[in-house]
């Protein structure tokens, strides 16, 4: 019986009759069009990924080469000073420390504000005020970062502090990060099934405890992803930092604690890339250290992402 059935089905699919030639021609055209479209889509995908890989390869190659260049432009064995020393000694240490200070301060300010605002939008946000907060957060996410820089420079650098400082840079980055965090946290909290909130409330657990002990833990990996994305975005920002931290090339003081002072001008990796890439080609150390700074910046962001993945491994909303 079964073989007969199969036979009949094959027959039904076979093209027969007087229009069979036209049918076969149409089938051939469809196949060709299908192949061409598949090829175009694949090419576009390859182009997008390929360009990224080329950039990455170039940065890694040139960046790695720069780790062997001395302050006078000569090449020698691996230059460990590159990560700690000042430019006059053949390194970009102050820029690395400065980026860690500024991004760290920004994260310290933006994470609590962003996460709490996200919790508000997802768990309490109804009515006009929530609508306004959501709208403004979306606007801020799309705001050109140089405008944030001008704002902080006018408000803090010119008028309040009276000088450039790491803190002003951190605040500028926080303004960029907080709305990104708030909106991501809102989105991931909305993915937490309502059934879990109801289960907790029905056990007689107050709403705030339900949020802290049930909703937030269920969404922790999404929250951390949002935070890391915002850190990655902020770490690469250049324009607001040029206007707020000044981008000095030396350390503030000789001991480690003094160098962490956020109330004085500091350096940073993006501003270092900007400054050094502008030197003429015969300034070998300057040009190569721009590549080195690029590679270090990418690596720092990569390490952050990996740490976040590792910290939230196995924790997922069902």
């Amino acid at each position: 019986m079964e073989s007969q059935n199969t036979l009949r089905r094959t027959n039904a699919l076979e093209v027969t009759g007087k229009n069979s030639a036209i049918e076969r021609a149409r089938f051939a055209t469809r196949r060709v069009v299908n192949l061409i479209m598949a090829g175009l889509v694949g090419l576009a995908a390859l182009l997008a990924v390929g360009l990224l890989l080329v950039i990455l390869y170039y940065v890694v190659q040139r960046g790695f080469e720069s780790f062997f260049v001395r302050a006078d432009g000569t090449t020698g064995p691996f230059n460990f000073n590159f990560f700690t020393a000042t430019p006059s000694e053949g390194g970009i240490g102050p820029a690395i420390l400065g980026t860690l200070i500024v991004v760290g301060l920004g994260a310290l300010i933006a994470i609590p504000i962003g996460v709490l605002a996200g919790v508000y939008l997802s768990e309490y946000g109804r009515g006009r005020f929530a609508f306004a907060v959501r709208f403004i957060a979306d606007m801020l996410t799309g705001l050109p970062s140089i405008i944030v820089g001008v704002f902080v420079a006018t408000l803090l650098v010119r008028n309040t502090f009276g000088h450039y400082s790491g803190l002003a840079g951190g605040i500028a980055l926080a303004i960029i990060m907080a709305p990104i965090i708030a909106r991501t946290v809102e989105e991931v909290l909305k993915l937490v099934p309502n059934a879990l909130r109801e289960a907790s409330l029905a056990l007689g657990v107050p709403q705030w405890k339900t949020i802290v002990k049930v909703v937030l833990p269920s969404a922790i990996s999404g929250i951390i992803t949002g935070v890391v994305l915002s850190i990655a975005r902020a770490a690469g920002e250049t324009a607001p930092l040029l206007l707020t931290i000044l981008g000095i090339e030396n350390y503030n003081g000789n001991n480690f604690i003094g160098r962490l002072n956020p109330m004085v001008p500091v350096g940073s990796l993006p501003t270092t890339i900007y400054t050094n890439a502008g030197y003429p080609p015969n300034e070998v150390f300057r040009i190569s250290s721009a590549w080195g700074a690029s590679l270090i910046l990418i690596t720092i962001i990569l390490i952050f992402s990996l740490l976040a993945r590792w910290a939230t491994r196995g924790k997922k909303v069902r």
Partner: peptide, 20 residues
Amino acid sequence: PVRVRRLIGMVFQKPNPFPT
């Protein structure tokens, strides 16, 4: 209402154990 819910428990349509 929190006290009321401690006195009157509820089981829902879809099983909803805490996944974490």
